[in-house]
């Protein structure tokens, strides 16, 4: 709404809000989204740092309120992982799941910040394009999904050996007969490609759509009194619904991470 004065058309308003604070040559691979990086790293440091500070002082006796909260989170994630993965989950998968859940959750939660108020605060600091939600940048979700993808391959090879992993690539799921090898390989190829795509795009799509709808409601609110009323009511409604989406998407992202990593440990 504050932007109405400086930005002339709705498309410009939306474009402005959806453009990244970039560094480096435009439209080249070496471009960096400063806003995405700064927001995600700060959020990661704050949340994991807070949890770390609680964990450092963790006592087996009566827990403090902070520790009780962190333990709630710990047990929630530990239970989920325990149901899916039947190996030594404490060595890597469970803590990784905690990182994914907490980090994605707080990055998603940036969607609750009202876009225009944040934009005016940023412009006071002299920043004119700044996106607050790192998970509505496909680079973030892809980075996470690809990291999980590489971990998947790493665990697959470590558990089954390189030969076993390659063998499975050609013999699962249809069988060991030589004439089904191409089909098996094609099947696995599709699986290996679709996993990171669906993993990352699901999160990205949800968060991006959420942001766009907030922007559209903001636009409506700028059209007059009735627009303001309906925009405010629907904006509130969408915010409330978004609480569910933010948590649910973080949960789904974590569960898929655990499922993929657990699948990599299983041999067919």
């Amino acid at each position: 709404m504050e932007q109405e004065g400086t930005l002339s058309s709705p498309s410009q308003y939306i474009e402005h809000h959806l453009s990244f604070n970039t560094q480096g040559a435009e439209a080249s691979f070496w471009t960096i989204h400063i806003d995405t990086l700064v927001m995600s790293v700060i959020l990661g440091l704050i949340t994991m740092g807070l949890i770390w500070m609680v964990a450092k002082k963790a006592t087996a006796g009566v827990p403090s309120k902070g520790q009780a909260f962190v333990e709630l989170l710990f047990n929630f994630i530990d239970d989920q992982v325990k149901n899916i993965f039947h190996g030594d989950r404490h060595a890597f998968i469970a803590p990784a799941a905690m990182t994914v859940f907490v980090w994605v959750l707080v990055m998603n939660a940036m969607d609750f910040l009202p876009v225009d108020i944040m934009a005016s605060i940023y412009s006071l600091l002299g920043i004119h394009t700044w996106r607050s939600v790192p998970t509505s940048d496909v680079n973030t979700t892809f980075a996470l999904a690809l990291a999980v993808w590489f971990l998947m391959i790493y665990f697959g090879i470590r558990v089954k050996g390189l030969r076993g992993w390659l063998h499975e690539l050609y013999t699962a799921p249809f069988g060991t007969k030589i004439w089904v090898w191409p089909f098996n390989f094609l099947f696995n190829l599709i699986e290996y490609v679709s996993k990171p795509l669906s993993h990352s795009l699901r999160l990205f799509g949800n968060m991006y759509a959420g942001e766009v709808i907030f922007l559209l409601l903001g636009l409506w609110a700028a059209t007059g009194v009735s627009g303001l009323v309906f925009g405010a009511i629907l904006g509130a409604g969408w915010s409330i619904f978004h609480i569910l989406i933010v948590v649910l998407q973080a949960f789904i992202f974590m569960m898929l991470t655990v499922v993929y990593l657990a699948m990599a440990h299983e041999s067919h």
């Binding site: 963790a58 803590p95 973030t140 990291a147």
Partner: peptide, 26 residues
């Protein structure tokens, strides 16, 4: 773009941190 690689590195460091320092004491 390159943001992806930077994010992946940040992710890896966060996971390492959690595996090493956050999970065991809890």
């Amino acid at each position: 773009n390159f943001t992806l690689i930077a994010q992946a590195i940040a992710f890896a460091i966060l996971i390492w941190f959690t595996v090493k320092f956050v999970w065991p004491p809890l």
